[in-house]
Simulated assay, not measured.
Amino acid sequence: MSAPSTATATATPAPQQINVADLELPQLAEVKRQLEEELSHLTSSFAQLKQAQAKFRSCIESAKEVKPENEDKTVLVPLTSSLYVPGKLRDVENVIVDIGTGYYVQKTRAQAVKHYEGKIEYIKTNLDALQETIQKKQDNMSYLVNIIQSKLQHANKRD
């Protein structure tokens, strides 16, 4: 016979909130460094999303340029944003769409435009949320800098 097992639940303690005004200058400097890193990462992510949004807008323009009057004409086909090769348009109703991770599908021009508009809208939603987060972090940074300056002034008055 084995003894019944008893499991003790260990509750994860809730994170403590600390008033930054109570921290010493070296601790404040570390918090400031962490905030700067977070802001740098967030602004970099914001810039990358903006670039992706511009790329999708460019894709929409490319899809709209495929017109029936260009059938069998030699055109420059974009392979990348800076590499174009000559080619002839045989099917002006359909385009090949990069749907990500190296997968391509055939869509009508209207479907391609709708696909890329959806991507742009999704990125816009993320950009809006990211902008709000960046603003909050910048506000936190301003508050932190004010506290550091206040503590430095107070320390200089004692000397």
Rank of each mutant, 00 (worst) to 15 (best):
V20P: 02
Q138N: 11
V92H: 00
E69I: 08
N156F: 09
V113Y: 03
G100Y: 03
S62N: 11
V75G: 08
E37P: 08
L79D: 12
V75C: 05
P15M: 07
A14D: 04
K73H: 10
A21N: 05
V95S: 02
H154Y: 07
V85W: 08
A9V: 14
T125I: 08
E65N: 10
Y104H: 13
T6M: 12
D128S: 09
D128C: 02
A29S: 09
N156I: 10
A47E: 09
Y116C: 05
P13A: 11
L130V: 04
E121W: 00
V92F: 06
I99D: 07
Q16F: 06
T6L: 15
S40E: 05
L23G: 05
T125N: 01
S44F: 01
N146Y: 06
Y103P: 03
Q53W: 04
L130E: 06
Q135R: 09
K124F: 01
N70G: 08
S2F: 13
S62P: 01
I123F: 05
A29N: 14
E30F: 12
E132W: 01
V31K: 09
L130P: 06
Q106K: 13
I123D: 04
A63P: 04
I18E: 03
T6I: 15
Y143I: 08
A3K: 09
T101E: 15
N126K: 07
P26V: 07
Q17G: 01
Y103L: 11
K88D: 10
H41K: 14
K64E: 15
L39G: 03
R33N: 11
T125A: 01
V77Y: 00
L42I: 06
H41F: 11
Y122F: 12
R109H: 07
L89F: 10
P86T: 00
E38V: 08
R158W: 00
K67C: 05
L144T: 05
E117R: 06
V77K: 00
V85K: 00
Q16V: 14
S44H: 10
I123R: 00
L35S: 07
L79W: 13
C59G: 06
A54P: 04
S81T: 13
L79I: 15
L28W: 05
I120L: 05
I147L: 03
K50S: 10
A110R: 12
A129I: 02
Q27W: 01
R90L: 11
E121F: 06
K137P: 01
L83E: 13
M141L: 15
Q153Y: 09
G102I: 05
E61V: 11
E36Y: 04
Y103W: 00
A129V: 02
L89M: 14
T101S: 15
D98P: 11
E132R: 08
L76G: 06
K55R: 09
P68H: 06
N140F: 04
A110P: 00
K64C: 11
P78S: 10
Q138G: 06
A112L: 08
K67Q: 15
A52K: 07
Y104M: 08
D72P: 06
G100C: 08
S62I: 05
F56E: 03
Q48K: 13
N156S: 11
I60G: 01
Y122M: 12
I120H: 03
S5K: 13
L76D: 14
T108D: 01
T6A: 13
V31R: 07
V95L: 10
E65S: 14
I148M: 01
N140I: 06
I18Q: 03
Q153S: 14
V31L: 15
